[in-house]
Write a protein that binds this DNA or RNA. Structure first.
Ligand SMILES: [Zn+2]
Ligand SMILES: [Zn+2]
Ligand SMILES: [Zn+2]
Ligand SMILES: [Zn+2]
Lengths: 134, 134
DNA sequence: TATGCACCCTATAGCAGCTATAGGGTCAAG
DNA sequence: CTTGACCCTATAGCTGCTATAGGGTGCATA
């Protein structure tokens, strides 16, 4: 492909994203549909690369696709207040903190149960006992 | 329904599980298909209630359906060693610990990013900056 | 006896966020 | 002119449910 135009494979390699994922993001409205070559290949430019990098980074930080879409939209309104961005990020952080708390409670319970297993027969196993009713 | 037989709704109420979820567990091989009444209603017994309670408890502890199936199978071999049960539980605990570690790293990064937002315009927002490439 | 209503049945589709086929077309090198 | 790497669309699959749609059952009440 011509220089300053990237194929979907180029974009995939550069951003460490699977080709199918990029097409999926396009369908999902996270990436604009790029121009096409004569042979109907997607022809990306630097702006698409930047956009996809943004998406990848946001996904790595755990933002949902809905949040990413919102963040992309807001990021384009350069002269507006960033209050909404802040809200999304804080909400997401709260969500992460909540998940950590949930998992810590779970881990504690599991550790306790696992620690009681005396490695005998199933009939005596404290793990099974902990899972069984009454 | 006759006493010592439970309808799916009874089971759902008793175990705080949705009716559809119980049917799903049956399809997924977690619960044995119960006998049917003349009107083709599922007719559960105490053993089914115990089984579903076990499943619920294991799910609450975060075990995957695959793990739960395995645990159910192993739990039935009362005179065998509980070593495999132990392995599954320890693997699962390790998985939970790993998720916690991942989320803590994520949370730290997010907290750092969110803490830098100066509440100005989008153009100056450190959150957007943190998400943008180069 | 009829009607209403709560409950049950199956089958199928939908959710997130991809990933993996199947069944083709394009394009440059040898 | 063929090989092989790449691209295209469409569709199905994954986990663990949940929510319809379109019926049938069973019991109480008018
Ligand atoms: Zn979020
Ligand atoms: Zn044990
Ligand atoms: Zn596990
Ligand atoms: Zn900001």
């Amino acid at each position: 492909m011509d220089h300053d135009v990237l194929s979907i494979g180029d974009l995939a390699r550069t951003t460490d994203t699977k080709v199918e994922t990029i097409r999926y993001y396009e369908r999902a409205g996270l990436l604009p549909a790029p121009a096409r070559t004569a042979g109907n290949y997607r022809a990306y430019r630097a702006e698409h690369l930047a956009r996809l990098s943004f998406v990848r980074r946001a996904r790595d930080l755990g933002f949902s696709l809905d949040h990413v879409r919102e963040l992309l939209r807001l990021a384009d309104q350069k002269d507006q207040s960033c209050a909404e961005i802040d809200v999304i990020a804080r909400l997401h952080l709260a969500e992460v903190d909540r998940k950590i708390a949930d998992l810590m409670a779970l881990g504690g319970e599991l550790r306790q149960i696992v620690g009681q297993c005396g490695h005998g027969t199933v009939a005596e196993c404290r793990i099974i006992e902990a899972l069984s009713p009454n």
